[in-house]
Design a protein around this nucleic acid. Structure first.
Lengths: 190, 190, 190, 190
DNA sequence: CATGAATGAGACTTCATTCAT
DNA sequence: CATGAATGAAGTCTCATTCAT
């Protein structure tokens, strides 16, 4: 018996990611996924119940991975400022370098294919930021605005920034990072 | 396209907007549009060449309308600050109250259906902000960052803010507006 | 506008009937129905919601038609014997000459595609026989056995008889009819 | 077919029987058979060439078993009447108690999966009845009607009777058996 | 020999667009 | 010009059979 090949799940995920990057979520078809993943179309259904499940599982896996990566240099022992910068920096780099992944997430956001499970996952990313912002408020550094609104603002802002950055075809420089960092920090500072 | 009855174009646009709000861009079909607009399915093709054209023309019409609305209180004679606040306020209100319209735009943003024409239209909205930010820089109020990046950041930030605001089911209060306003202004200030 | 063509429903029904006769219910496909009915495959869905609905609507229409045909010479004013013979004769002829229709009904009987609606329709056929048998019992001609059991026995018997008749390739003769008639009548007589 | 483990053939047959009872012949899949028989899906192909062969071999095995059971009390030395009643009784009981088996046979009857081999097998069941009816005719008890037609009539009648019996949810009583017996005997008697 | 993962043809169904009325 | 019935390509998913382990 050929054992259920766990690597195939990844192949299917990667193929999906690449395809959406190229042809959009709307252009995604099962047979294209199969071809791109070098897997028979029917095989996909051994690992996923439906196209919807592929999308959702990839979405969740990316969200979780990003949450990890964003907080990779987060250090409980540290005070607000270094932690904020660490997270900002990681998020910015993430956004910029994992274009395909962020594009996929964005395509999914407004899709009816996205399950509730996937939608609430946002909280995973928000959790530590929440704590951090509370600390910033305690340190009298951060404005007294609801954390969710602050996080929404900051993440939306950075993504908007990067979207424009890409549109101008400019190479990412240290100056860009510092500019974005300044925007974010000044925005939330009291 | 022979727009014998220009009112029908509007009926089709409105129907499309309402439908996307309800069932998403993915669930949109020509027959549903026809039914909702109380127009025969074939009739649509008298006014639009294809489904794609409906989407794009609606997209462009909304973009243009928003651009107008956002700049409604913009006054060339004024200095940076009052103009910025006027625009901010108009954009914020727009985003918040025209949920269906912004939802439609968001659904379209990453869609392969969107033509280049539509994508470039972003500039219409950006144009006056560009001028304004230049003025702010001249007044030594605004950070020296590329205007497109600034605009991307600000608009992304506000939209993220409002998305969260909606998610919390909170009613919009003056406090919210002031909070968002402070975030935006402090962000770009030197 | 091309009006919904009621004749097409019939064309689809006839095509279905002919196909099942040839390739069985299991071999029936939508594209074959379309081809046989000279109708685009998609067109079928203008008139029927699904393959299941085609089957069920045809089933019900045949059942109703048969019920009518079987009772065509039934005459309330008459006594048991002439009515019984009239029904017997009509049923026998029906069974024999509408082979495709009875084959279709038989194929459906055990199919999971058949809806409850269709299954209970049996009663339509049973109704008048019920009355007739009651009369026969009142006349002390018919055995005192539950009507449903009697009807099941008689119809099953006749169909079994005809199935064998066909298997022998024999032409239907008056002798056959009289034989079957004698079997049925003697069976239920006191 | 290398029946190394003949018990597996039986397991597969039993699983098929149970599954058809539950989900119908149309819902039957190889993987379900494998699961129900606790046998790897591929293993089935060691014992059977195809799904069709499973169906046909089970069909034939049941037909043969029933033929045996029906004639279990048949006694060449006896005259028509006791033998007829013995066979009738056995057939009736068989029909009633082996519902799953008869359901399976019925599902198969009109299926394109059924091979000619299987269809012809009917004769095995008919053989002794043939002899018996000839005897009955010689004894001037049985009507002079072609044996095949008589057998078709009787078996069809009994099955119709039992189908209705089941539909009424009634428990089987001695009265029912006597009623059916009377119907059959009176039918064929001169 | 046993297993169930792998395969792809083919099933049902949808829908953008065309066309007859 | 208005209409919606007609069309068939294309999408998702199933499943008999094969094959690697």
């Amino acid at each position: 018996m050929k054992p259920r090949d766990p690597q195939k799940i990844d192949r299917i995920h990667q193929a999906t990611l690449a395809l959406v990057s190229e042809i959009g979520l709307a252009g995604l078809t099962m047979s294209k996924i199969g071809k791109a993943a070098k897997v028979g179309m029917g095989t996909i259904y051994t690992y996923f119940e439906s196209k919807e499940e592929i999308i959702n599982s990839l979405y969740q896996s990316l969200k979780r991975k990003h949450a990890e990566e964003i907080y990779i240099n987060f250090d409980k022992a540290q005070s607000f400022s270094p932690n904020f910068y660490a997270i900002f920096h990681a998020f910015f780099q993430n956004c910029y370098h994992r274009e395909a992944e962020y594009f996929f997430l964005e395509q999914c956001r407004a899709s009816p294919l996205l399950s509730l499970d996937s939608i609430v996952l946002e909280e995973v990313v928000f959790a530590k930021m929440n704590t951090l912002l509370d600390e910033g408020k305690a340190e009298k550094i951060v404005k007294n605005i609801d954390n969710n609104l602050l996080i929404g603002y900051l993440m939306g802002g950075i993504q908007g920034f990067i979207t424009q950055l890409r549109r101008t075809d400019a190479k990412l420089t240290q100056t860009h990072i510092e500019a974005a960092s300044a925007l974010c920090l000044d925005a939330i500072k009291i």
